[in-house]
Design a binder for these strands. Structure first.
Lengths: 203, 203
DNA sequence: TTATTATACTTAACACTGTTAACTTATTTA
DNA sequence: TAAATAAGTTAACAGTGTTAAGTATAATAA
């Protein structure tokens, strides 16, 4: 029964085309400046064809955001395999998180800043990228505590505070590019150092 | 020449009506679900009248955001008059900042999260609310250093890192209301404590 | 007081939006 | 070969931000 498979493959191909076209347009022109007709034009299909693959424009954005989250997660999970002590991995992860945002500012904006407003975002269902990302963060914090490099703080609270701080720096740098920031790397590393120092065990 | 004054007053009145109607609608229905026609309906004028006071919808949002910024700034500046040592004032300011966001989530969203995307936001011209807010933050950090409660960190970098952390916690709590957050106050105070601990002078 | 000019506001229109229902065409199954 | 399914399109609806042109009213100048 290769026929059904071919059909499924074609359908999947078109879905990919739509996603790629939409991401390109969303990133270059901004979500609200991109119409379904523009996306359709780009893939040379009629606008309504998109609705055979996505319920509406918000769901199209949702699918793109989910892929962004996956890419970020892959970057982060790769890091823990490089080894090093717990704090080093945590620091590198934090740096990578912000770096990802600054390297793909429009994608970060769509996924973490803009998306929640359109679609109650960030599913944390078992196995979702969001859930895996947060489990990764929890494990890092826990490791720092077990290695006695952090004082015995609450893992969940600390994880959320760390995410907050990193998301804050990232989203401000992205959202206000004209603000008179100090050197970006200095700012990022200072924010990370302050947090880590504040969590360190008293010596 | 009371006539011109009356006219100016009427004009100002209508501007206020537009701003109030627009803020109410933006906050209750969301910026993109509010049309210029809806705002006009609410004040019982034709849609085009709004364009005699604001260049376009984004500028209308900009004016509302500026007022929100003013309100936040007033709240903060009131705090420093209550007295207390430098760290206490800094902590209370940080708490107030987040509290403001959580008490007016839609306003915070419009001003700090959503606005930048529509209009390259946050003017820092001499005397603007944004500029005053940042001067206030710098002064607080400086005071903590001079009182030897903070180690001699760079004031500008530290201020920006603090703002980042607070904005991050605030915007995440607002943007992801369904996320399994720990107790909000615990999270907020933990984030603040970690930062302050990380900045304290070694004793 | 009358004619002119400026102000405040409205009507009508343009080009575009997300989305749905109804239709056509091609492909697969019975 | 006929019926059913799938894939894709056309046409339309109700609504959008915004502009140009028009109208009425009030203020000024003659």
């Amino acid at each position: 029964m290769g026929i059904q498979e071919r059909k499924a493959r074609n359908k999947e191909d078109l879905r990919r085309q739509i996603l790629d076209a939409a991401r390109h347009l969303f990133v270059t022109e901004g979500y609200e400046n991109v119409s379904m007709r523009k996306v359709a034009d780009r893939i040379e299909y009629s606008p309504t064809t998109i609705y055979l693959h996505f319920r509406n424009k918000a769901e199209l954005l949702g699918a793109i955001s989910e892929e962004t989250l996956q890419r970020l997660l892959n970057t982060l999970e790769g890091l823990s395999k490089e080894g090093g002590d717990a704090i080093t991995i945590l620091r590198k992860s934090a740096q990578s998180y912000v770096a990802f945002g600054l390297e793909h500012p429009k994608d970060y904006d769509l996924t973490f800043i803009k998306r929640p407003l359109y679609q109650e975002g960030l599913r944390l269902t078992e196995g979702s990228a969001g859930e895996r990302a947060f489990r990764y963060l929890r494990a890092m914090v826990n490791e720092c505590i077990e290695q006695k490099q952090f004082r015995p703080v609450d893992v969940e609270t600390t994880g959320q505070a760390l995410w907050g701080a990193m998301h804050g720096v990232t989203s401000l740098l992205i959202s206000y590019p004209d603000f008179p920031w100090v050197d970006k790397n200095t700012l990022i590393n200072t924010a990370i150092d302050i947090m880590i120092d504040g969590l360190k065990a008293q010596t």
